[in-house]
Design a protein around this nucleic acid. Structure first.
Ligand SMILES: [Zn+2]
Ligand SMILES: [Zn+2]
Length: 173
DNA sequence: CTAGCCTTGACT
DNA sequence: AGTCAAGGCTAG
């Protein structure tokens, strides 16, 4: 969905702001207030979700992805969900919201999501460092719109060979 | 159920 | 200190 900046309640001096009040607070305020990490995070640009093309919120399960896809993948694993689809092609229409859970799951897997991501790479692997490194590379573009833009894909690993394996193994969860 | 926001805990 | 992603919570 659309990017939501400062939409929610912001705790300032123990006071909850409504939307209009929040709007009034200047962009610059949040830019300089580094204590509010969550708001700084909303200023960052993590690129697009590799699953549904929404705005990514970070690297989740090894894939730059949005909150929705992250939670969907997590829920699917936890609840051992099984989905089905006749066409099995719904993932092609990524812009349409991925209403089909089967194809949504497939899209997650094909994007490279894996619950075993921490077993494939050492903890705090380059996967998690990639956004930071790229951020460093594009530091000179920082000033535009207060955004730290990451233009490149954050992850470039040899997933192509192993992805089919994980695809199969995860199908049965 | 979904997904936005928050907290936790590890790492730097 | 700052940063990050996983997990928790919960309104809709
Ligand atoms: Zn997504
Ligand atoms: Zn489908």
């Amino acid at each position: 969905m659309a990017k939501k900046i400062f939409k929610t309640k912001v705790q300032l001096e123990n006071k909850t702001l409504n939307e209009q009040e929040t709007e009034k607070i200047s962009y610059e305020f949040y830019k300089t207030n580094k204590k509010l990490e969550k708001d700084m995070k909303s200023l960052k640009f993590y690129g697009n979700c590799r699953v549904c093309n929404d705005d990514a919120t970070g690297v989740h399960f090894g894939v730059s992805s949005c909150e929705a896809c992250r939670k969907f993948f997590k829920r699917s694993i936890m609840n051992h969900n099984k989905y089905n689809c006749v066409e099995k092609k719904c993932a092609i229409f990524k812009r349409q919201g991925l209403k089909c859970n089967y194809c949504k799951w497939n899209a997650c897997i094909q994007a490279g999501m894996s619950k075993n991501i921490d077993k494939m790479f050492s903890f705090k692997s380059p996967i998690q460092k990639a956004p930071k490194l790229l951020q460093k590379e594009t530091n000179h573009t920082k000033n535009q719109e207060n955004r730290t833009e990451i233009k490149e894909e954050p992850i470039e690993f040899e997933f192509s060979q192993s992805s089919s394996y994980y695809y199969e193994s995860n199908q049965n969860i």
